[in-house]
């Protein structure tokens, strides 16, 4: 019953958001093969002006300490909003962070954020990057003051929220209107799943899909290609990054990280929490021969995942069907 009413409310808000004559109305659209999202814009009504402001802030390098780094510097659209070719994030003053930048899409379905799940709400997830000395190296006071004194921001806040008031809440809500709208659900895989006409897997892709379902989905579960759990896949005997236990304080969580999505994996290299692998071949070889017996290694991986050359090629062929070019090339999300 509760579920039904939520579903109804949801359907309602969707309708409201749909019709406008002049400009293209920004919508949050749920692909047919996706479940109900966690974040539903209930307390943050989606509008064109809110989205436009959020996007402008996302690409605003003047927010950072040395005015060189924006959210978009680390979260690049052509890399599905991760940082191409950077093992770990690269912030102000050429500082290297400690973790690989995750891609940004389908965040509205996530209950927790960061590799260790330390952040619990999409709206508060930019705060760490803003304040981290190694990312944007600034603070909210400075950003609020900058925006208050810099045209056209006061006008943009007025258009988005009805008042020229600028505070951290409105900054974070507008950024979330941008980040939560980033939905990637138009890959070849999605079209095959939705039985869209004329789209089908090649025989190699299909063989890869079957192998994937057999060997990988227990962690990389469809349709997000993650079950959002925290696990160790045996990268190191002793991890140098505590991972999940940094948040829970529980020893059995040491060295565990969130199972990452594999959508757009073709474009999100390098891979793993510390960006140690540059190619999918290296990743597959890790599962085939490189799994280390770390203390908290997931039991499913205690013998690794044996893969011969053909199987590796088939899995790779399947993984490439997870690329969503419409998302990566959507000019709505690009810096304008």
């Amino acid at each position: 019953m509760l579920f039904l009413s939520i579903a109804l409310m949801y359907a309602c808000s969707k309708n409201e958001d749909e019709v406008t004559p002049e400009e293209k109305k920004i919508t949050f659209s749920v692909p047919a093969n996706f479940p109900t999202p966690v974040y539903n814009f209930e307390d943050n009504k989606l509008s064109n002006a809110g989205f436009a402001l959020g996007k402008k802030l996302f690409y605003e390098a003047r927010l950072s300490a040395d005015k060189s780094v924006s959210c978009g510097s680390c979260h690049q659209q052509f890399a599905a909003f991760t940082q191409l070719d950077h093992k770990v994030s690269h912030g102000v003053n050429n500082c290297q962070g400690k973790r690989n930048t995750p891609p940004l899409f389908n965040l509205a379905w996530q209950k927790a954020f960061f590799w260790d799940g330390g952040v619990k709400n999409i709206e508060t997830s930019p705060l760490n990057a803003i304040t981290d000395a190694c990312e944007m190296g600034t603070d909210i006071q400075t950003i609020v003051a900058f925006l208050k004194n810099t045209a056209p921001y006061p006008d943009l806040f007025k258009q988005a929220f009805g008042s020229t008031e600028i505070n951290s809440q409105l900054i974070l809500k507008s950024i979330s209107q941008f980040t939560a709208v980033l939905v990637s659900g138009n890959s070849k895989y999605d079209k095959v799943m939705r039985k869209e006409s004329g789209v089908s897997f090649t025989s190699a892709e299909l063989a890869g899909y079957n192998l994937f379902k057999e060997k990988c989905t227990s962690c990389h579960a469809e349709p997000f290609f993650t079950d959002f759990s925290y696990r160790s896949n045996g990268l190191d005997l002793v991890s140098t990054d505590e991972g999940r236990s940094h948040i829970t304080g529980v020893a059995s969580d040491f060295g565990k990280f969130r199972v990452p999505t594999l959508r757009n994996i073709e474009y999100t290299s390098p891979y793993m929490h510390d960006g140690r692998f540059y190619s999918l071949d290296e990743v597959l070889e890790h599962y085939n021969s490189g799994v280390k017996a770390s203390a908290n290694l997931d039991v499913q991986l205690k013998n690794g995942i044996l893969l011969n050359t053909t199987e590796k090629e088939q899995i790779k062929a399947f993984l490439k069907t997870l690329t969503d070019n419409e998302f990566i090339k959507n000019t709505l999300y690009s810096e304008s």
Partner: peptide, 8 residues
């Protein structure tokens, strides 16, 4: 008074 790396 807000932890940004471990919400709360």
């Amino acid at each position: 008074m807000f932890w940004t790396w471990n919400s709360g």
